[in-house]
Design a protein around this nucleic acid. Structure first.
Lengths: 363, 363
DNA sequence: CTGTTAGCGCGTTCAC
DNA sequence: GTGAACGCGCTAACAG
């Protein structure tokens, strides 16, 4: 009995008025749902004419595929989850921007969750994302990693940002190299008493920057180091300088683990009547937008956070539908030294003569 | 025939190994899927003992409900979409933070999409979110609103941020009032030649701030106004001052439509050898974190963006499942004047005597 | 090329 | 209290 379902309208409308479905379009276009599906998804071959007709009908009925149904069927949500800790300011927005722009090109959506202070909270969110996303981009303090590995279904593609874990894809910034480069720059400028304003101890980036500072500082016996506490906020940079002001000889240069603290430090210095770079040189890390607009402009290490986000998306995107567990991707994004006036005359690192003059002047 | 389905395992595993489903739990616990569902959702009454047992089994099997299936069934995704234009820096992160924190409390997820420069791009995204979200929080230039209203299913709860549209819920910042308050402050300080650095023309906030400036400036014949172009970036603030420097008499005060431009302006002033507030007073809008750490600290209008995000979520959340179309919510968030040193000595608005002295000094 | 049909995993009447 | 069975809207075989 090839009963053509002609009175389709009645069995519907059981609950809400509901949106127009693939069945409605099929009925109206006089084809089967399969054909409509094929047209919509451009899968398989459909006669050009049929295709146009279906498309026209769908358009006229304002048909929009139900994503939940599709996800259920193909087991894919075309969405990736992004979970970040409690980061503020530009970092957050830029990394999201990077991920979002890359995701949009691939027609992916991003489900974000930010500001997770404690581990349990983060794990809870991770759990809730299960099934909702095809892959995950996670930034977490190292301490969470172990628990994370157990919690997460190991078949879910995942890339870790700025933290390390064997057996997982990771994407990091070359914090160590950047810090070392900055120290080399300050050293070349003639500075020997260089203080460092640290970031939060729990932060992996902060630790690596500190390591760069320490390692370089140990390379020369004439170096006098000093470490000031900080937590990446402007205020902590301000406080760090205040404390330094009241304790012993001032350093010739202050290297802050991030730009925000450098700005805070400059503020404290200005308040104390000290000039930059005349009395003390200042440098930061990140190259946030205002870095070049403070007075004097801040010498810093540029980090392309947006690029980090883009790479993160690309990494997980490639991992989706890759059942074979290859060896983890471990990429480290480069940083670059941006020389501005806060550390003395503008010199090019590549010009040893000029460097010599500066060194003498600063001696 | 009460055939207990004992050999459940075979019909499964047709495609991927697939995660554990409600059927698996039911079979293992020796109950029906309906019961498991009831236990998981705490709906209907289930015998305490049965409930505990099912829960235990589910836990042991690491059962996680499939959200796609649930969404399909209950027609609800527990997700809200957030669509923002191309905003940078703190605004973006703070509004997301606000929405996210409120959403998490309600067990909602947020699907974000940012940096939409043109209208079509935004409409595309809006379209793609259809079915994926239960409600929408949208920030768009006014120009899009008309198209937006047509595009969006009118039954989808939606709140507009910083833009207006009849018949839609809107949440705005009191930009006009804030700008007027700042003008009153500068006026009280004795300033009469006050320049204004404008924001992007397409931006509703920028327009309102400009309106506040103009309206107040017209209240006194002694006022001399001047409008400088800007686009909310530090660089444009810098450029605005550079252009002013080369054209006629410098204003006594410069009121930037946002803090970023104020910072850029200060940078240009410092470069030109002008002091703040000695030679020219500077004020901004937003109270971004670095505002108090530039030298001198910036007088500004505080805007609580995170709160804006929280309110936005609450507004749409309340609208979900509210079939009755009440009259639109139109809320306007207050702003407050933060007096710092960039406009002269620190004075309290409430102290007329002090204000008098300042006025005389500035005369 | 196109139609039929069986799931995808879960919520939900309606009997029992 | 609990279970059987249907439907949510769509994709993917499998037939034709």
């Amino acid at each position: 009995m090839t009963r053509i379902s002609s009175k389709q309208a009645s069995p519907r409308q059981r609950r809400r008025p509901s949106a127009v479905t693939i069945h409605d379009v099929a009925a109206r276009a006089g084809v089967s749902v399969a054909t409509v599906s094929r047209v919509i998804n451009r899968k398989a071959l459909v006669r050009e004419e049929t295709s146009r007709h279906v498309l026209a009908v769908a358009q006229s009925m304002k048909y929009v595929p139900n994503v939940a149904a599709r996800s259920l069927s193909i087991r894919r949500s075309h969405t990736i989850g992004v979970v970040l800790p409690d980061v503020h300011g530009d970092f957050f927005s830029e990394v999201i921007r990077g991920i979002d722009s890359a995701a949009r090109k691939a027609s992916f959506h991003i489900l974000v969750s930010g500001s997770h202070s404690d581990r349990n909270e983060m794990l809870e969110v991770l759990d809730a994302m299960h099934g909702r996303v095809d892959a995950l981009i996670v930034m977490a303090p190292d301490v969470s990693i172990a628990a994370l590995n157990e919690q997460l279904p190991s078949n879910l593609p995942l890339v870790l940002l700025n933290s390390t874990a064997a057996d997982r894809d990771t994407l990091t910034i070359d914090n160590y190299g950047g810090a070392a480069a900055m120290m080399a720059h300050l050293y070349a400028l003639g500075h020997r008493r260089i203080a460092f304003i640290k970031g939060p101890h729990a932060n992996a980036d902060a630790r690596e920057r500190l390591r760069g500072y320490r390692t370089f500082a140990r390379r020369d016996a004439s170096m006098q180091t000093r470490e000031l506490e900080g937590d990446f906020t402007e205020h902590s940079g301000y406080d760090a300088v205040r404390s330094a002001l009241g304790a012993g000889r001032m350093p010739q240069a202050i290297f802050a683990a991030n730009d925000s603290m450098a700005v805070g430090a400059m503020s404290a210095l200005a308040e104390a009547g000290l000039t930059v770079p005349g009395d003390v040189a200042i440098s930061g890390f990140d190259d946030i937008p205002i870095a070049r607009f403070v007075a004097p402009p801040l010498t810093t290490i540029r980090v392309d956070i947006e690029e980090l986000g883009r790479r993160a998306f690309e990494t997980v995107f490639l991992a989706i539908d890759q059942p074979v567990r290859r060896r983890p991707v471990r990429e480290r994004l480069p940083t670059s030294l941006i020389v501005r006036k806060s550390c003395g005359a503008h010199i090019h690192q590549s010009n040893p003569v000029e460097r010599q003059q500066i060194r003498r002047r600063n001696a």
